[in-house]
């Protein structure tokens, strides 16, 4: 005699067949409402469990919070670097850039970023969120000194926090050593000599003060395209000044011949020199011709 199987058992077997890949997903249509309620609970729970691993143990909350904090700091450092780069490009150097300080991190040093602007290199040391910069600086002096020591090409270190509005101060190489203070003559401990500012502003101030922007050398000449270098330079004045200087030197000479010859230089020589200089500026200078003219002047003298 064949024992009749419970419909929910049959359905469960069919569903496990389906999960094991040997059957189609069974239908619940033939079940009574009571059977259907139980079957639905079982299958719904099996579906909700899909992919879960009962053996997996998750990391502790403390470890996760530490990782989350480190990740937030990394994002904040990246954002700070972008803000500094933008501020420097706007106010100091259109080619300024900020990059991760891979070299310092590889050496186990505390610098997180390197700022390149107008030939300067500023390394960035990040202190705790919300920290007072003066206090944090005092605690970080050894770390900053280590950065200066490891990277002699560093002009300064920015000590900054990662607050929503980051505050920081630029530290010079001289700020991390004990110094003799005037007029007292007493040794003073390291301290920040520059003001605590919004960190991007602190960098921009430092770069502008330390490396003022110079006009390009060709700037004046290039303002008027038609103007040549000879037009810009007062050739007669330069030649007269040079001759006058040599004549004055000759007046102080101890050798009589030198005294006589140098002191006798005057307008003819200045005129010759001005002509030669004018030709040189125009790209027409001929050394042979110049020597010949000088010799003629000597003969006349």
């Amino acid at each position: 005699m064949t024992e009749l199987q419970d419909p929910v058992d049959e359905l469960l077997d069919a569903y496990f067949d389906y999960l094991e890949g040997v059957g189609e997903e069974p239908s619940l249509d033939h079940l009574t409402s009571e059977q259907r309620a139980e079957a639905e609970q079982l299958i719904s729970s099996l579906k909700a469990a899909q992919g879960m691993d009962p053996e997996a143990s998750r990391p502790s909350l403390a470890a996760l919070m530490a990782q989350a904090s480190a990740r937030r700091d990394a994002i904040s450092v990246e954002s700070l670097g972008a803000n500094i780069e933008t501020a420097l490009r706007r106010s100091a150097d259109p080619r300024a850039r900020v990059a991760g300080d891979v070299a310092a991190q590889a050496a186990g040093l505390a610098s997180a970023l390197v700022i390149y602007a107008r030939g300067l290199r500023i390394r960035v040391l990040v202190v705790d969120e919300g920290a007072d910069i003066d206090t944090a600086y005092a605690a970080s002096v050894p770390s900053i000194a280590a950065v200066f020591g490891a990277f002699p090409d560093s002009n300064a270190v920015l000590v900054t926090n990662l607050d929503p509005i980051p505050l920081g101060a630029i530290v010079d190489r001289d700020d991390v050593v004990t110094a003799i203070e005037t007029p007292s003559g007493r040794a003073r401990p390291p301290r920040i000599s520059r003001p605590v500012l919004h960190s991007p502003d602190a960098c921009a101030h430092y770069v502008t003060e330390t490396m003022p922007a110079f006009e390009p050398f060709e700037h004046l000449a290039s303002q008027r395209a038609a103007m040549s270098s000879a037009d810009v330079v007062d050739v007669d004045h330069i030649a007269a000044g040079a001759v006058e200087e040599i004549a004055a030197s000759g007046a102080r000479a101890r050798l009589a011949a030198k005294k006589d010859s140098w002191a006798s230089l005057g307008r003819p020589e200045a005129t010759l020199l001005a002509t030669a200089l004018r030709r040189a500026l125009a790209g027409e200078f001929d050394e042979t011709s110049f020597r010949q003219q000088v010799e003629e002047l000597v003969d006349v003298a």
């Binding site: 106010s91 919300g130 926090n161 607050d163 505050l167 003001p195 919004h198 502003d201």
Partner: peptide
Amino acid sequence: MSNPPTPRPAA
């Protein structure tokens, strides 16, 4: 340049 803001503790 903006004025330096007052530091505040992290929330």
